[in-house]
Amino acid sequence: MTERMNKVLSRGLLHTFIIFIAILWLVPTIGILITSFRPAQDVASSGWWTVVGNIFNQTQFTLRNYRIVLSRLGIGRAFLNSFTITIPSTIIPLAIALFAAYALAWMRFFARTYIFMIMIALLVVPLQMTFIPILRIFNRSNLAGTFPGIWLAHSGYGLPLAVYMLYNFVSGLPKEIFDSASIDGASTFHIFLRIVLPLSVPIIASLIIFQFLWVWNDLLVALIYLGGTPDVAPITVQISSLVGSYGQDWELLTAAVFISIVPSLLIFFGLQRYFVRGILAGSIKG
């Protein structure tokens, strides 16, 4: 009897804690969501929670922010550009990193340790320091202002983290599968394609999400390598051009947050199913 009580109690505690954390995390976001529907003059004079008290008072809400954002952005083109930049900039570095991580984890060769060390060191290189030398070369090779240029740049910037995290995952795979596959006469590429790749799905999914978000939210790299003309400008660049030189009209950002966040959330939900339990366990057994 007491054991059951204990169980109920601990379940209750668990739910309370989880809901508390979720609310804690959500409060700032809810605040900004409400703010995005409020007129600028109200925002500056009273807290956003004051609308909750009389939620049915329609006059305190406005769609102005969303209307302006959607009409000024040239939203279709900006979204298309963002996808054109983000999708290859996510796939290319992950593909390259997978090969590198596999080699680092399961092959023995000269300078392996040094290469691994350098990969980690490169994590700390501040991107801002790379802009000038890279842009200089991009200029000469006509890559400045083109999509392939920025794909390559994002690939370079995203690689160290991808290699590092993939290495750690791939090196943790049980040695036995590699041994038995080798005995069966499978080539290294075959092992890579048939064993490493499928087993790494969860970590690849996390890295896709991460790299996607990183590129999707990037402003400076796009401004530097692509410029801000509407033909190529991604959504972040267009959003930043909503704000005046003195920071006026920042309330438009509150609406822009919720417009630009949508694709990232879709990616997250879409890849969610790869986080389920047992992918790894199941395939090892089989």
């Binding site: 000038i132 200089r136 200029n139 801000g228 003309t229 660049v237």
Partner: peptide
């Protein structure tokens, strides 16, 4: 006229000038 407006102008201008690719 291809106009880019950004409050990050100092960073963008410094980089593009130093790299020989100014507007």
């Amino acid at each position: 006229v291809e106009f880019t407006g950004t409050r990050d102008l100092p960073a963008v201008l410094t980089t593009r000038v130093a790299a020989g690719n100014p507007p």
